[in-house]
Amino acid sequence: MTSGFAGREGIQVDALVTDGYLDSLLAAHARGADHAPTTSLPADPIRSIADRLARELPRYHPSFRFEETLAARLAEVARTMRSQDLPERRLKSLPSEMGEPNDGDGSVDRIDVHLRPSLGRPLFIGSAVTSAALSLVGVAYIAWRRGRSGSTRAI
């Protein structure tokens, strides 16, 4: 238990002790044990709430249907990324599609925001990419192509 420090230093020391306790607690839970042997313990309320949260906080898994649907979508994107030689005749301008208002049905604001400033000239994707959901494929493909040619970009 810690108590000898005051103010800012005190909370940092207490936080360090708590952190060490959480390390051992979570490691113990991973091994299937309830308690963790530790050299220093945090104050009682912290220790008991940490034990409680580690034991009781629920974990969720998305539905199988969602998991498989997204897996299929990712596989489709991956296929598009692999086939780099799309015929020119099947291409269409990307910026006009990306510039459409977002109606919240699966279009990609985040990617859009980061791609748009760096688009020096019109980019093209397959004309089969029409719906908002499918346009993810085109955006992902272009981002991947750009990524392979150069710098790391934060998303």
Binding site: P62, L74, V108, R110, L136, W144, R148, I155
Partner: peptide, 29 residues
């Protein structure tokens, strides 16, 4: 899910996250 507290919102964010990650995986360091 913990952030948005809604199943459908969480699914949408999850999908966007993985699609964006796949799109940029080549540039990940």
């Amino acid at each position: 899910f913990y952030e948005l507290r809604d199943q459908h919102e969480a699914e949408d964010v999850t999908a966007r996250t993985f699609l964006a990650a796949l799109a940029s995986i080549a540039s990940f360091e």
